[in-house]
């Protein structure tokens, strides 16, 4: 069933002119979605998003977005404030469910599984699609407990030694082990901002996710901490798909393989990061990248 969907859909999309599909899709929406320039689709995607619309009450925040997220890639989402990039990011692990009055329509799949399906539980979904937030938000518990929390609630471990292994492995992957191994019992909130953010990353990867969503993870950090996180992202993409929302175009250029440009709820342009920054095809993208607005 899933494979059928994938082949049929990607096949159709691959062959039919995009303009036609998009106009068909948007005919029943309030305002016509702007057509996406570039190729938003990839082979063998980790996640697929089709015709995603998000409403806050009556207001439409995301307008008919279609995009794929590849395996082991870093995809950056850029765009001016209020363009909907964070909102879109939060659709991917259904964090928008927690917001009063927020409604998501469309089809989002993780490895072919419809995440809005009645049989899909949001709890394991969020374990598979982890999230790192703009402001480092470690729990007011010890460093160890911060990382151990996810494996504990999901029942991933049988005993304490397994738990310790996971914590150590996660902290190592997050590049925090050397700094934190002697103070595992101290509160996570006592770390510096960058360390806290890496702790949050360790916390997310402790439950072995497939995708990590990062919502402007470096905007509250100084340049040195930022550099460390960026380094970390580059390493992590060997194991995970990473979707990063960022305000900094330099950051997007440094860490991502693909970049998506959002504008007022529309996905304007998607493409290889090099290509987007050197040769934007859409006027809006070019204006944003060249700093004409932002």
């Amino acid at each position: 069933m899933e494979s059928l969907f994938q082949t049929a859909e990607s096949g159709a999309l691959a062959t039919a002119p995009k303009e036609e599909i998009l106009s068909e899709v948007t005919s029943n929406t309030l305002h016509k979605a702007r057509e996406t320039v570039g190729d938003p689709f990839v082979e063998n995607p980790r996640m697929t998003c089709r015709e995603v619309n998000v409403y806050y009450g009556e207001k439409k925040a995301i307008n008919n977005v279609n995009i794929d997220i590849a395996r082991n890639e870093v995809i950056a989402m850029i765009g001016p404030s209020g363009c909907g990039k964070s909102t879109f990011l939060r659709c991917l692990n259904r964090m928008n469910d927690t917001i009063e009055g927020c409604r998501v329509t469309g089809d989002i799949r993780l490895d072919g599984m419809d995440i809005h399906d009645k049989n899909v539980d949001v709890v394991p979904l969020r374990a598979r699609v982890g999230m790192v937030f703009q402001k480092p938000n470690p729990f007011p518990k010890s460093i160890f407990d911060n990382v151990a929390y996810g494996p504990k609630i999901h029942g991933l471990v049988q005993n304490k030694s397994e738990l310790e292994e996971i914590v150590e492995a996660s902290l190592k992957k997050a590049g925090l082990w050397e700094e934190a191994k002697d103070r595992l019992n101290q509160p996570g909130t006592g770390l510096s901002g960058g360390q806290q953010q890496r702790l949050c990353i360790a916390r997310a990867i402790a439950v072995s996710p497939e995708v990590i969503l990062m919502d402007e993870p470096c905007s509250a950090l100084d340049p040195i901490a930022t550099a460390k996180i960026e380094e970390l992202i580059a390493e992590l993409c060997e194991h995970y798909s990473i979707v990063i929302v960022t305000h900094s175009m330099q950051q997007a250029a440094r860490v991502s393989q693909r970049t998506a440009y959002f504008h007022l709820g529309d996905l304007i342009e998607v493409g290889k990061t090099d290509r987007i920054f050197t040769n934007p095809r859409h006027q809006l993208t070019e204006d944003y990248i060249t700093g004409r607005f932002g």
Partner: peptide, 22 residues
Amino acid sequence: PPSIREAALGIGASKMQMVAHH
């Protein structure tokens, strides 16, 4: 702060776990 709630939810805690643990 909502950030704590998001952190808990974001890692896959159920609502009850979010409330009880954090």
